[in-house]
Amino acid sequence: MTLATAVRPVSAGTGPAARVRFGRLLLAEWTKLRSVRSTIWSLLLLCVLTLGLTALYTALTVSQWDQAGAFHHAQTAADPTALIVGGGLALSQLTVCVLGVLVMASEYSTGSIRASLLAVPTRTPMLLAKSVVFALLIFVVGEAVAFSSFFLGASILHAKAPVAIGDPGVARAVAGAGLYLSVLGLFALAVGALLRHTAAAVTAVIGLVLVLSPLAQLLPGSLGKHVDAYLPSEAGHLITQAHRASGDLLSPWQGFTVFCLWTAALLAAAAWSLNRRDA
């Protein structure tokens, strides 16, 4: 190997020219996202489901207040945020899972991945740009949805279990819901990139998010508890809770870090697979 060929790869992918090119990729990925209907429909569904379910749960809680026992009263009053933020999110998070999968898997199902890779043959920057743009979009929409649904739910619940955004842990939990959704979107995107098949990837993500935790809890003794605590969605979910439950092994930020590590590992695997496999 000559010196020239040995030195060349070092300069590739760095410097101002590469930064300009990455800016272009961000712009292109943004155009990709906004130019298909699935994005708009999924995000609309996310807003409607979250706000609708939050309103429904809180309104039901208020109307059933007198029938509910003292234990339920105490539970709701101790952590109203869990009811407000957690209730709607449990189901509406699936829209983010589906959209995340679609963002990458639809490139394969329609064949547009070939055009994308012809334009960006180094591949990894394309995946990176897509991840950045998608995570930012879900973060912005997710925060908007989380705060709207909090204020909506808090106003409905006010007479029975008052809660304010300034209460300890509440602002972090509500903002955490947006963060959680944004990382969940990346998690789904990575699975979509790895499996390349929409239906398979949606099934896998929903399985990981909804089905794995009840299964892990079936494991005997503290093993089940430990496995469950470190599962991606269970760990990630902690950041959306205002108060740490007595049995939780991880703090909210620790849990969120675990979720981010899972996602980072999957994205790294997706990048490796994207580079290694034929398009």
Partner: peptide, 21 residues
């Protein structure tokens, strides 16, 4: 075919153009 079926021809070409400046 290498085009997203849900995207317009204009946007398909615009995306490619944006990647190349």
């Amino acid at each position: 075919r290498a085009v997203h079926t849900g995207r317009s021809a204009y946007n398909h070409l615009l995306i490619l153009a944006q990647t190349q400046g």
